[in-house]
């Protein structure tokens, strides 16, 4: 799970992190996650029934997938504020497509959404690299454009519906293995793909770029192209999340609101430095699980919906502050403000 086992037998000459370095990067968030899971077990002894645990995984899937995508952007030195709007747009566009062309094969709609997410990500990437717009502003602009366009198109009330076969991915189980929801399968695939990507040369170069883009550039890295790739993958991840959310909750013009901040919070809970260059994708996804576990715990404890966000705020600040303290021996940059190298 740490993604840092030593390189397999082949005589790799390139740099690999020490085996324990990755574990140390993941450790604080694992402590948090375990603490929350223990609390869940205490409050609700039935929580670890396989069925309910899988239901928890299914509920977590969209946020974890978004966090994996957001991690790629953050570790390369940027932000992606547009993912919530992409989720909303994805849900609404799917419903409109089925409305315009009933009987459309669901795989076609899935393909359209994935391409749309890719396109949004590529535009984000190009605007923030080729046109040198800070990614905070570039993706904020994208968020405004997508929100406005979705509401403009639907006049605030999305029409249409999502047919059963399309919603399968979000809410049904794998045929023949009724205990296994599709969403968990998708989550596992995305998770493995993210870990493999970060272990590849491209993934490692991405981290190096976030750490010091000038040095990476001088070393021959195509910085802009790499960052565009990170945004593109974040857009695709958001589209995947949109497919799951649409299946899970149905059509709503608020389907994705708030997801961008939750995803960023999850990544930071995972100990990933805003500004780039440090942190692991496993930790980012563990951060997303922690956040989802926190939501579940607050619901179980009967904290009223309104106070929930207040408790969430306190815990997020505390967790990041504590994480920062235990990091401070290694990391000298924890006090750095939001400072993407833009």
């Amino acid at each position: 799970m740490t993604g840092t086992e030593p390189a397999s037998g082949a005589a790799h000459l390139r740099w690999r992190p020490a085996p324990l370095a990755g574990l140390r990067a993941v450790a604080p968030v694992l402590v948090l996650l375990v603490a929350l899971l223990v609390a869940l077990a205490v409050v609700d002894p039935g929580f670890f029934d396989p069925e309910r645990l899988l239901a928890f995984l299914r509920r977590s899937a969209p946020l974890v997938i978004l966090a994996a995508g957001q991690y790629l952007v953050i570790v390369s030195g940027g932000f992606d504020l547009s993912v919530g709007a992409v989720v909303t747009a994805g849900v609404v566009v799917a419903a409109e497509l089925f409305n315009l062309a009933p009987g459309l094969p669901w795989l076609v709609v899935v393909a359209v959404l994935l391409l749309g997410g890719l396109l949004v990500g590529v535009v984000n990437g190009i605007v923030s690299t080729v046109f040198a717009v800070p990614s905070f502003i570039a993706t904020l602009g994208m968020m405004l454009v997508l929100q406005g366009a979705v509401f403009f198109w639907t006049q605030g009330a999305p029409r249409g519906y999502l047919p059963e076969d399309y919603r399968m991915l979000g809410r049904s189980a794998v045929p023949g293995a009724e205990w296994l929801p599709w969403a968990v399968v998708v989550l596992a695939v995305v998770g493995v793909a993210a870990v493999l990507f970060m272990r590849s040369d491209t993934g490692r170069t991405l981290v190096a770029t976030g750490d010091n883009d000038v040095a990476a550039g001088l070393a021959g890295v195509r910085v802009a192209r790499l960052r565009i790739l990170a945004f593109a993958l974040s857009g695709v991840a958001a589209a995947v999340a949109a497919i799951l959310v649409g299946g899970f909750t149905g059509v709503s013009a608020q389907a994705g609101s708030g997801y961008e901040f939750q995803a960023i919070t999850a990544v930071v809970l995972g100990g990933v430095a805003l500004g780039g260059g440090r942190g692991s994708v496993v930790a980012a996804m563990a951060g997303a699980f922690s956040l989802q576990a926190l939501f579940t715990l607050l619901t179980l404890l009967g904290v009223s919906g309104a106070l929930e966000s207040a408790v969430q705020g306190v815990i997020v600040i505390t967790a990041v502050a504590v994480g920062g303290i235990s990091w401070s021996r290694r990391a000298t940059r924890t006090h750095q403000p939001v400072r993407e190298s833009v």
Partner: peptide, 15 residues
């Protein structure tokens, strides 16, 4: 506390 301003003020917003 050395919390990144983005997270610190986002947390305050939630509170």
């Amino acid at each position: 506390l050395g919390v990144n301003a983005f997270i610190a003020t986002l947390g305050m917003a939630l509170i």
